[in-house]
């Protein structure tokens, strides 16, 4: 079974149509990966489907980089984060 980090990065690569090798921890969604407004929304939807959970839009919106996204989902899956 893939790790949370692998799952997060696969979702990002697929959703933003970028090579998985570009999905580095320090990569910023908007500036480096080109996630414009609509794509951000699609990314949130894709994460909800991948992890079968409802995310709080405001909490998800604070995530700016790939590394933050990995940490965000690791915390959620460990029960430390906020779902809606």
């Amino acid at each position: 079974m893939a790790s949370t980090e692998e799952r997060v990065k696969q979702v990002i690569a697929k959703q933003l149509n970028v090579d998985i090798s570009d999905v580095k921890d320090e990569a910023r969604f908007i500036e480096d990966l080109g996630a414009e407004s609509m794509q951000s929304l699609e990314l949130i939807a894709a994460f909800e489907e991948e992890f079968d959970m409802s995310l709080d839009e405001d909490e998800a919106g604070k995530v700016k980089t790939v590394g933050q996204a990995v940490k965000f989902f690791e915390d959620l899956l460990e029960g430390k984060g906020n779902l809606t």
Binding site: S37, M38, S40, L41, E42, I44, A45, E48, L55, D56, E57, D58, E59, A60, G61
Partner: peptide, 13 residues
């Protein structure tokens, strides 16, 4: 958008 209802950016934005 794209013919479906989706979550937005969140209230604070």
């Amino acid at each position: 958008y794209k013919g479906k209802i989706a979550k937005g950016y969140g209230l604070e934005t």
